[in-house]
Nucleic acid binder design. Structure first.
Length: 658
DNA sequence: TCTATGGTGATTTTT
DNA sequence: TCACCATAGA
């Protein structure tokens, strides 16, 4: 264990002030980009334990991503040798899930409730719409999904909503049905996790009192990203005696469109008053020029809490602005510049190409591919979201919870076994009329004479298959269960029949799933639950990036959104054009425009040494060529911080199409 | 049940 | 343009 002086020794004055503030004082740490906020958070927790004699058992630390939660736990253990077993560190959703597993009864859930991901939710909504004969082309399931999540994030149940107009009435009706269906079948979506816990606490004050007393110190990361539900969740835990430290940056709030409320920062200041506000403005990442440019852009926003980053890393170079002829020319410029840097000794992994929308990656990829530069695109399909993985997990789910109709529908005919749409429809209808699960009605149907002989046979074989599986996996360890299911279900042979790299990749992923099950460690609090149930929840909540060959250095391609929290020596921000970035939708909405500006600020502050800004005069969009005007964000950077540049390579490729 | 074809519509996505 | 669907026909 380190002593108190050592905890403070590596910090600057503001960081030290935040870390060593009195233990009973609420704090708001406004942490600029690259100002060491995780450092402050971790050191604060260590300080509370060391200096104030707080037990880790009394600490609660909330983050948004699993990655951030993992990093925090790691750093506490490695830097301070702090035992974190009794400490609650996790994401809002992860912690809520844990609470619901412990208090499922008080929360009015089934013991074996299942967590749905966005895809499951989408399928379920579509199914409900079909059942009610709602025309999908007139009412997009996606908008209904969005509607439901928006309401849930704002803690609004269907019965508490007065729908306005025809369209909302339809969506509201689906919401009502959806709610009832989830309750009946023990399905819980992401928003529900938080909402349930809040309702449960509000209903059982003794339960809430227990957690209020237990968690004397609560830390929250990325507070600017909290939505209504998350704020209320935290507010519930505030009992008057415990102390909060929230860390955030109003200038980096870029998830307003997902319900994040930047106002929560101000609200926190009022509702937890008095709050000690500390600003971390020294940046340890970028050159002063890059920071001045970022400051100049973000200063245009109104209603900021006020902050200005500075650095002692020297002036550095001006930002390079490239005016491309079109998006292909832009990509060639980026690649040529990267190669010029590499020739001067940089590694491929020191570069990031950031764009507003994923569609922009394609042209970049083509140019990188042609030049033979290694690259990696972030934000693709995640491991547990892949089709073959979800199919396998659906078998697992159906075996664990036969009432899981979503799982049933997904795999009843995957691989194809002669149970067509007509048969499924009959099962669905029977289930609806008899108030049964699809699995139950399928079992009944094979006893009756409702189906044609062929369909009845196929269905019978499916039910036998599942029953056999159930017996086989009964006392197997988790990984073997998964393996049994992959083979018994016929999924393995299905992907074996398909030739080509795609099928091979799918088989590899299935093997990887067995490995994931093998190395899955059930958390000790979950020991009451079947390992498979924990594993399924884990799969939903930690969908996991695909970490393909992280060892070869590669240029990183990602959206500006997914770059938040990362840093790179050299950053290219591409497509800086009006109606692309800022996006067309933000053009006549001042609030959206400010969010775009914050996104630009996030992008600029990713760069450590060198930042390139690119825009094209014309760009192919949706099959049409449009003329583009340079983004206002380029103009908002003072002239003396920028320099116009040309193609860096001697082998200039023709930029014209065809 | 599989495959071909045509219509549609198109940011950002921590859980 | 292109990817994702839903539907029609084999």
């Amino acid at each position: 264990m380190l002593d108190q002086d050592q905890i403070l020794s590596s910090l600057n004055a503001e960081q030290a002030a935040a870390v060593s503030a009195p233990a009973n004082q609420h704090m708001l740490v406004l942490a600029g980009a690259g100002s060491g906020k995780t450092r402050v958070l971790v050191h604060r927790l260590a300080w509370l334990v060391e200096h104030d004699g707080i037990s880790p058992y009394q600490l609660l630390s909330v983050t948004f991503t699993n990655k951030a939660a993992k990093e925090m736990r790691n750093r506490l253990e490695t830097a301070f040798g702090m035992p974190t077993t009794g400490m609650w560190i996790g994401t809002f959703h992860g912690l809520a899930h844990r609470l619901l597993r412990m208090h499922w009864e008080a929360a009015g859930l089934k013991e074996n409730f299942q967590v749905m991901d966005a895809d499951d939710q989408h399928r379920l909504i579509r199914r409900i719409m079909k059942e009610h004969n709602i025309d999908e082309s007139r009412y997009a399931p996606k908008s209904t999904q969005y509607y439901i999540n928006e309401k849930k994030d704002a803690l609004k149940r269907a019965h508490a909503i007065e729908p306005m107009g025809r369209k909302e009435s339809v969506m509201h009706q689906i919401y009502t049905e959806y709610e009832a269906y989830c309750q009946k079948n023990g399905m819980v979506d992401f928003a529900e996790l938080l909402m349930r816990v809040i309702e449960c606490w509000q209903r059982s004050p003794e339960l809430l009192a227990h957690y209020r007393e237990r968690f004397t110190h609560i830390c929250v990361d990325e507070f600017q990203d909290t939505n209504e539900a998350q704020y209320t969740w935290l507010k519930c835990l505030f009992g008057g005696d415990n102390t909060f430290m929230v860390v955030g940056d109003d200038d980096q709030s870029i998830y307003g469109w997902r319900g994040a409320k930047i106002e929560n920062l101000m609200r926190y200041q009022q509702e937890f008053s008095p709050v000690n506000v500390i600003r971390l403005q020294q940046n340890y990442r970028s050159t002063q020029t890059i920071l001045s440019a970022a400051n100049a852009v973000i200063e245009r926003n109104t209603g900021r809490m006020g902050k200005s980053l500075w650095s002692d890393r020297g002036e550095g170079e001006p930002l390079a602005v490239y005016n491309a002829f079109n998006e292909i020319d832009e990509a060639h410029f980026v690649v040529a510049s990267i190669q010029a840097h590499i020739e001067r000794g940089r590694q491929a992994n020191e570069f990031a190409i950031l764009y507003r929308s994923n569609a922009q990656s394609r042209v970049m990829e083509e140019a990188l591919m042609m030049s033979g530069t290694a690259y990696r695109v972030y934000g693709g399909m995640r491991f547990f979201e892949r089709q073959e993985i979800k199919n396998t997990l659906a078998y697992c789910r159906l075996l664990m919870t036969p009432e899981d109709d979503t799982a049933f529908e997904r795999i009843v005919n995957t691989p194809a076994r002669g149970i067509g749409e007509r048969t499924v429809q009959i099962i669905r209808e029977t289930a609806q009329i008899e108030h049964l699960s699809m699995w139950e009605s399928a079992k009944r149907l094979i006893q009756s004479q409702t189906l044609t002989g062929r369909a009845q046979n196929a269905l019978m074989r499916f039910i036998e298959l599942m029953t056999t599986c159930q017996v086989l996996i009964d006392d197997q360890p988790l990984a073997e269960q998964v393996e049994t299911i992959i083979h018994q279900s016929g999924l393995w042979s299905m992907y074996q029949q398909d030739k080509g790299e795609k099928a091979q990749a799918k088989r590899d992923n299935l093997s990887e799933l067995v490995n994931a099950a093998q190395s899955f460690k059930q958390s000790p609090e979950d020991d009451e639950i079947a390992p498979m149930m924990s594993f399924l929840s884990h799969a939903v909540m930690e969908a996991g990036e695909v970490q393909a060959d992280v060892h070869t250095p590669a240029v990183q391609l990602m959206t500006l959104h997914s770059a938040k929290g990362l840093e790179f020596p050299v950053v290219f921000i591409v497509g800086l054009e009006e109606r692309l970035f800022p996006t067309f939708n933000a053009m006549d909405d001042p609030d959206k425009l400010e969010e775009e500006r914050r996104l630009c600020y996030v992008g600029l502050t990713r760069a450590m040494e060198k930042c390139y800004l690119c825009h094209a005069e014309s760009r192919q969009q949706f099959g049409k060529t449009s003329l583009m005007r340079p983004s206002r964000f380029i103009r908002e950077i003072p002239q003396e911080m920028k320099r116009a540049v040309r193609m860096q390579s001697t082998i200039r490729r023709p930029a014209l199409r065809h």
